[in-house]
C-alpha cells in the first residue's frame, strides 16, 4: 500500500469517527477540498498523520470547534463580486419594495461581511427597517466575529472599491469608524440582523423568505447534498422570491431547476415561478 492509499484510509477513518461522535458527515463534502483542510489541521496540530487526529475527536476539549473552524472555508469579503450586488441593488430591491415586510436569509454567511453589505444596500434603498435578515452558518466561531461587525482595517480599501463598483451611492467611510487596526461597522446596520447557528445538511428551514443568498457554500458539497439544500431553499421561498448563489454555482442540474427562472443571466440570481 503506498502513502496515498494509507492517507485515504486514514481520512476515511477520521471522517467516520467525526460522523459517529459529532454527527457531521463530511462524506457529503468534496473530498479533495476536505482532504486538504484535514491535512492542514494535522500540520497545525503538530501531528504527522491524519489518523493521529482521531484520539483528539474523542478526548480533546473544544476539538469540535477546532475542526469546524478548519473545515469551513471562512474566506469572504464585503461586496464580493460587485456586479452581483449592483444587480441586487438595481433589479432585486425594486421588486422587494412593494412588499410590506421582507424576509432575507443569508445561508453560510461566514464572518458576516456579505450580510453587512446587504444591509448597506437595503439602507440606501430605504428598505432596511422593513427587513428581517436571518444570517446563518454552522461555524459558531465565524458567527461570533459576524456579530461584532469588526474587521481588519487593511481590508477596507478593497471593500471601498467593491462598494463603488457595486453601485454604492454614499461614501463608504460613513459606514465605519476606525479603532486602531480595526474598522467597526455602524452598529445600527445590525439592528435587523439575527445571527444564528444553522447546519444546511441537517436543520430545517425557518419560514418563508423573499430572498435567499447562499454563495460559495454549495461548491463544497457533493451533488446529493447540493440537491438537499436546493430543496430546502425551494420550500423556503414564496412565489416570485429570489435565490442568489455563487458565481460558479448553478441550479441547472438540480431537482428545482424547473421551478426557477434565471432573473439575471450573467450573475446567478434566480426567481421562483
Amino acid at each position: 500500500m503506498n502513502v496515498n492509499d494509507k492517507e485515504e484510509l486514514e481520512l476515511d477513518l477520521f471522517i467516520s469517527m467525526v460522523k459517529s461522535y459529532f454527527d457531521y458527515d463530511f462524506n457529503d463534502y468534496s473530498r479533495a477540498s476536505i482532504k486538504r483542510r484535514i491535512k492542514q489541521l494535522a500540520v497545525q496540530s503538530g501531528v504527522e498523520h491524519i489518523s493521529e487526529l482521531i484520539p483528539k475527536v474523542l478526548y480533546e476539549e473544544n476539538f469540535r470547534d477546532v475542526l469546524l473552524q478548519s473545515i469551513s472555508v471562512t474566506v469572504t469579503e464585503m461586496f464580493r463580486d460587485p456586479s452581483v450586488f449592483a444587480s441586487i441593488r438595481n433589479e432585486v430591491i425594486p421588486a422587494l419594495m412593494i412588499l410590506p415586510t421582507v424576509n432575507i436569509w443569508h445561508a453560510g454567511c461566514a464572518t458576516g461581511e456579505e450580510v453587512y453589505s446587504m444591509a448597506i444596500i437595503l439602507r440606501e434603498a430605504g428598505l432596511l427597517q422593513y427587513c428581517t435578515i436571518h444570517a446563518t452558518d454552522f461555524n459558531e466561531a465565524s458567527l461570533d466575529i459576524a456579530r461584532q461587525g469588526k474587521y481588519p482595517l487593511e481590508n477596507i480599501k478593497g471593500y471601498t472599491k467593491n462598494y463603488i463598483a457595486g453601485g454604492g451611492i454614499c461614501s463608504f467611510s460613513d459606514y465605519y469608524t476606525v479603532d486602531g487596526k480595526w474598522a467597526i461597522l455602524d452598529p445600527t446596520l445590525r439592528e435587523q440582523i439575527r445571527f444564528y447557528r444553522h447546519d444546511l445538511a441537517k436543520d430545517e428551514g425557518f419560514g418563508m423568505m423573499n430572498l435567499i443568498l447562499c454563495r460559495n457554500v454549495l461548491i463544497y458539497f457533493k451533488k446529493h447534498l447540493q440537491d438537499h439544500v436546493f430543496n430546502l431553499f425551494d420550500n423556503s421561498l414564496d412565489v416570485n422570491s429570489f435565490l442568489v448563489i455563487g458565481d460558479k454555482e448553478t441550479i441547472e442540474f438540480s431537482p428545482i431547476a424547473n421551478s426557477f427562472e434565471a432573473f439575471c443571466p450573467t450573475c446567478k440570481i434566480y426567481r421562483r415561478g
Partner: peptide, 21 residues
C-alpha cells in the same frame, strides 16, 4: 481554472472549486 477560484480534481474524476485562502 476560473479566476478567483482554486481548482481541484476529485477521485470521481470530476472538478471541484474552492475559495479557500
Amino acid at each position: 481554472a476560473p479566476a478567483n477560484y482554486h481548482l481541484l480534481i476529485e477521485r470521481e474524476r470530476q472538478f471541484s472549486l474552492s475559495v479557500d485562502a
